[in-house]
Write a protein that binds this DNA or RNA. Structure first.
Ligand SMILES: [Mn+2]
Ligand SMILES: [Mn+2]
Ligand SMILES: [Zn+2]
Ligand SMILES: [Zn+2]
Lengths: 125, 125
DNA sequence: CTGTTATTGCTAATGATATGCAATACGTAG
DNA sequence: CTACGTATTGCATATCATTAGCAATAACAG
């Protein structure tokens, strides 16, 4: 059930979002159970924790469904909270380059770009 | 005193690290007070919160002294926790490019590269 | 059907951070 | 310096996300 609900969510979600989505399907799962299962799903490569430094002040961490989807990073609007997913291979290549320069083997990265979306640039200039 | 201690720390620190460093100088400051003053120092551009997704699981957030220092990002060793600071202008340029492609005005970013340092590559291959 | 093991829910513990408030330090006008 | 209003502290307590303990329940295998 948990897996099913996760696969049908297309946006980033918190453990509580999952509980709500499950409840909508008639499945009442304790939050504790959800918290207990998230690490397994993460290790299995089905979800990824995407807690953004930008929104970290207070509040639960967020995850996203990544099974079968290509890697992407995020662009966030500081004002409206909108999240845009992007892929930019040249960036990934440069990250590898930085790691190599320091003799590191790069395993993964977390990159978030924070700015103002087109709409928010106008309304709050 | 707080400001003084921060300026003499050259590594990333937690609020508790600050308390310890202050105590070493003979100044006993309540943790509450430190927590209360960190946001001001951050707004003033003296420190920056650098909580890494990599070490976020449990534990306090970390800050670093940035006043007068040029911008940098971090390369972390997953195994030994070592942090390396780097500047790589080409990366920053590409980040701007991504933002522009989506009509965003880029304000800041958070990037952490996680991998294995040279030493840890040998000991845990 | 029955004993064995894995998963759940409930409740209470943790640990970082925030808040209420009274006590103290500070800065300034007299 | 001296008294008073304001800003800053410390202490105790609240919050809130996440975890742990444990007994109840479901899943599984023979
Ligand atoms: Mn995403
Ligand atoms: Mn740094
Ligand atoms: Zn916006
Ligand atoms: Zn290492």
């Amino acid at each position: 059930m948990l897996l099913d609900v996760i696969c049908n969510l297309d946006f980033h979600f918190t453990p509580e979002d999952l509980q709500t989505a499950l409840a909508d399907q008639g499945c009442n799962m304790a939050l504790t159970t959800i918290y207990r299962n998230l690490p397994s799903l993460e290790n299995a490569g089905i979800i990824r924790r995407t807690t953004f430094m930008e929104e970290q002040e207070r509040g639960a961490s967020t995850y996203e469904h990544i099974w079968g989807k290509p890697h992407h990073d995020h662009l966030l609007c500081q004002n409206c909270g909108q999240k845009i997913e992007f892929q930019y291979d040249a960036l990934e290549v440069l990250q590898e380059e930085v790691a190599r320069q320091h003799g590191f083997t790069l395993l993964r990265h977390h990159m978030e770009l924070v700015g103002l979306c087109p709409q928010c640039q106008e309304s709050a200039p």
